[in-house]
Design a protein around this nucleic acid. Structure first.
Lengths: 347, 347
DNA sequence: CTGAAAGCGCTTACAG
DNA sequence: CTGAAAGCGCTTACAG
């Protein structure tokens, strides 16, 4: 004689219990004003008693708003889910739900799936950790907002906060102040705006300060690339200051230097980027850049939400990254007279 | 005179164009048999022409199935989204959609949000990267399936494939074969079943082989813990073989050993777990365990889906991890006579 | 093999 | 300040 237990309470059930109409329940729940306090409380009480939760599918059908956002994940990519967590909490705060949508690795399938997703009408906005081709994006002008963290914007400026390479400038200035004159950059992959920004900051700062550069080498985030760049250097390259695009390539470079018998930081000073957990425990411990990825994620999501709602862009985040100075950066070791005069002549 | 452009085509539009009823469109699209090939093609043609996509909210309302699964993310936790990507693709393959739901850090809020989520009726299943209290889980016996990757199952056995600590056994056996007699384990945090499994494998293997253990120390995944464990050892601890629960704590241990002047692998051999990108470039390069996280993620999701559908558990994954032997593991360096006889007396 | 009709649970003009 | 009614876009017995 018990009620059907598989039946989740509906607004109708709440209405019945509260002795009001279904519309009134809806009015109370959607916060429409013009409801008497007494009725409001009766409805809320009934809803609580029944443990009522609105059926979101039904609501979304009526309102034609899905309230859902998707996070696109490349199959292989940045494995720092912290940024995603920031995005998730910002979305939740704004009443949106985030979905993970993984993209296939092959460019063709990927393109197809992207077009499908964007046209599906299921999502009000997209935050992508991967680049989005303009053809996939332009499918429908009245379609959802698509924001990619790995792309240039229309004005050919970088989008997002990912690309603030200011720490590179500071690191080179400090190294120069310590007496370094000869530099080298181990770059990240050129598909990444962040890698390009770091490279450009390196090139510009070297030039501005009139320093010597052995070049921009590398082109990947891997340890291998850092290792081989240093391995291939002539013995005369030291004393040297190496600006690596991330901690992993810096670690590769440090191994090569160690195996060559170069001392660090005396023969070779080096900096990384990312501050991975182990970087503080290398010998020497690695100077790096700490990024507040949670804040970055939150900010990206707020930008997306503002765009979806047609609101102006939120204030850009600042101060979300800083340098941690460690043993790998110090003054160059004194050299034999011929070489040090050589270096001095350049300054 | 154009049609309302904001109007997404519905099954009714498709029906009209195809000259059939709405039900027929639905029958074709849901794959119900008993539809003539001619009608089928007409409907599919009309759907394609209109670029029709079924409204999932409406469908879900009728079928009372949301077709959505949630991934619960702890606010701070494993930052390997690769496992999540495997989960995402497996879910997609099975016709489910994944959502990211982040959980607040405070236990109370977390518990509350969890209860709310599980009772929301929005999800058919949960795959959690964080532990789920049984009170949150047991809210409703007829509720959704909840699967946690960080928990013990009813029979007090570990759940999931995370906890296969077999590589620890192999590593100790190899080190013993190389002549090591004295071992030490730097453990992970005891909340993690994977950490417990590695610890237990260590303890059992040491005992089985009759080796000496300086203890199970540590209790975190950090570099700090590895560093201080080694720093606090007496000088007489070497030659020593260290089994660290992960690469980061191993790196910390290596730094401490280096600063003490212990050679590796001669005075101290060491192993890690995870094979982080930089581990192959440490000096000495670090022996570690590679896990196929994408496969693990896929498998976890398949387990969840099977549970949601009331199907039997899928075959467990095997061979998803293997040891990469590197420079950090070798025979112990020969010692002065008094100490080596000391060590020999123990074997 | 196909159609007419009901209904999933909500929101929202429209009355009163 | 509140209610009756329509309708969002689907699926699914029920007829025929």
């Amino acid at each position: 004689m018990t009620e059907d237990r598989s039946h989740r309470p509906t607004s109708r059930d709440v209405a019945r219990l509260a002795g009001v109409s279904q519309s009134t329940v809806s009015f109370v729940l959607t916060g429409r004003n013009g409801i008497s306090e007494a009725t409001r409380e009766r409805v809320l009480g009934a809803a609580a008693q029944l443990n009522y939760r609105p059926n979101l599918a039904a609501r979304s059908m009526r309102t034609r708003r899905s309230g859902r956002l998707a996070v696109l994940m490349p199959i292989t990519a940045l494995n720092d889910s912290t940024i995603l967590e920031g995005a998730a909490s910002a979305a939740q705060e704004a009443g949106y739900t985030l979905e993970i949508v993984s993209l296939p690795p092959s460019p063709d399938e990927r393109e197809q799936r992207l077009t499908e997703l964007i046209g599906s009408g299921q999502y009000e906005g997209f935050l992508s950790f991967t680049a989005i081709s303009s053809s996939a994006r332009a499918a429908d002008p009245s379609g959802p907002v698509v924001l990619s963290l790995l792309e240039f914007d229309d004005k050919m400026h970088m989008t997002g906060a990912f690309i603030d390479a200011q720490p590179i400038v500071e690191m080179i200035e400090r190294l120069a102040a310590l007496g370094h004159r000869r530099f080298l950059h181990i770059a990240g992959p050129p598909e990444y705006p962040s890698a390009i920004a770091r490279r450009d900051a390196y090139v510009a700062t070297i030039e501005r300060l009139g320093l010597e550069s052995l070049g921009v080498l590398g082109g990947a985030w891997s340890g291998e690339v850092g290792y081989s760049v240093i391995e291939d250097l002539p013995e005369s390259a030291v004393p040297l200051a190496v600006i690596a695009a991330n901690d992993v390539s810096a670690t590769g470079a440090m191994r090569a230097a160690t195996l060559r018998g170069w001392t660090m930081p005396g023969d070779m000073s080096i900096t990384g980027w990312d501050d991975r957990g182990a970087s503080a425990f290398l010998v020497p411990s690695l100077t790096s850049v700490v990024q507040d990825r949670v804040r970055l994620g939150e900010h990206s999501m707020r930008r997306l939400i503002a765009a979806v709602r047609g609101e102006p862009d939120p204030e850009p985040v600042t101060g979300y990254q800083h340098i941690v100075w460690r043993e790998s950066v110090a003054a160059p070791a004194p050299r034999p007279p011929d070489r040090s005069s050589d270096a001095a002549a350049r300054g």
